[in-house]
């Protein structure tokens, strides 16, 4: 399979990439790792006239913590994030999540900014990003702005990014004492996309769950939070019985997709199972 013809431009800076986006409008697509875009182009599901390659833009690299925030350049690959000592210590769930995306070749190519901008219904990072309550920094010709995780995912493969905007960095809170997060997924055996993936982040203060965020990916058209589960767990001890009770409502109020890999009913059942697993691990990490 060969993509339809296009013009390829290797951008050397964010400013150049944005200028090209503005020049070509809807005719242009940004490519980073390309492991979502190129397969879609090979199937002719996507036929951009211009491809703007940002994989080698140095400004989009870098992993650092400042105060209570971990900031990762949008162009950092899954493999770089999964093996970063800074990420492993500041936000271990992000390292373990990126370490289980696809396979090593996918992780050598795919980027965190690309995953969030593409917003694949079965992406792993979307759920983790939502559970952590991160923000993306977005740049356009008009300047920069931040978009909170809760506002980023609009619908299937659609984000709140405007045309002409590029994600330049992804920030998540540094995990502190009493906080824990986990990502549990039922993976497709060949692609390792999430058939169902659940990310959970909890804060435990004085033995009680004081904050909780849970998000589901893979099961429906977009990653979504589970407010009823979160609300049910807050104020409890986070023990097995409270997690089981809270997860009774997991996935009750969301849209589902069924396909050849798993039916809607199966995904609905697995959301509860994987929500409980993610919460159990998150609580254990918070208590550690």
């Amino acid at each position: 399979m060969i993509p339809a013809a296009f013009e390829y431009v290797k951008a050397s800076s964010v400013a150049q990439a944005i200028a090209l986006l503005n020049q070509h409008g809807d005719e242009a697509k940004v490519i980073a790792g390309g492991h979502s875009l190129l397969p879609a182009m090979k199937l002719r599901l996507s036929q951009p006239a211009v491809l703007i390659d940002i994989a080698q833009v140095a400004e989009l690299k870098g992993i650092k913590t400042a105060g209570s925030t971990l900031t990762i350049g949008a162009g950092e690959t899954y493999h770089a994030i999964a093996t970063s000592a800074t990420v492993i210590s500041a936000c271990p769930v992000l390292a373990s999540c990126t370490g289980q995306i696809g396979d090593i070749q996918v992780r050598n190519a795919g980027t965190i900014g690309g995953a969030l901008a593409h917003a694949d219904p079965a992406a792993d990072l979307t759920a983790v990003f939502l559970a952590l309550g991160g923000t993306v920094t977005v740049q356009s010709a008009g300047g920069t702005r931040s978009i909170a995780a809760d506002d980023l995912f609009v619908s299937m493969l659609m984000t709140a990014l405007d045309s002409g905007e590029l994600i330049t960095a992804v920030s998540v809170p540094v995990m502190s004492k009493g906080q824990g997060a986990s990502y549990a997924k039922l993976k497709h055996p060949a692609s390792r996309y999430a058939i169902v993936g659940v990310a959970a982040a909890v804060t435990i203060s004085n033995g009680v769950v004081s904050a909780c965020r849970v998000a589901v990916t893979g099961a429906g058209p977009q990653a979504v939070r589970q407010p009823s589960v979160e609300k049910a767990l807050i104020g409890t001890s986070g023990d097995a019985a409270s997690i089981k009770a809270a997860c009774a409502s997991a996935g009750a109020d969301m849209e589902y997709l069924g396909d050849i890999h798993a039916s809607e009913e199966y995904r609905r059942a697995m959301v509860k199972v994987y929500a409980a697993r993610a919460l159990t691990d998150a609580v254990a990490a918070a208590r550690a």
Partner: peptide
Amino acid sequence: GKSVKSCTTLAARCD
């Protein structure tokens, strides 16, 4: 030095 899937890599990127 890094393993990649060459069916999903543009030759132009490898300049």
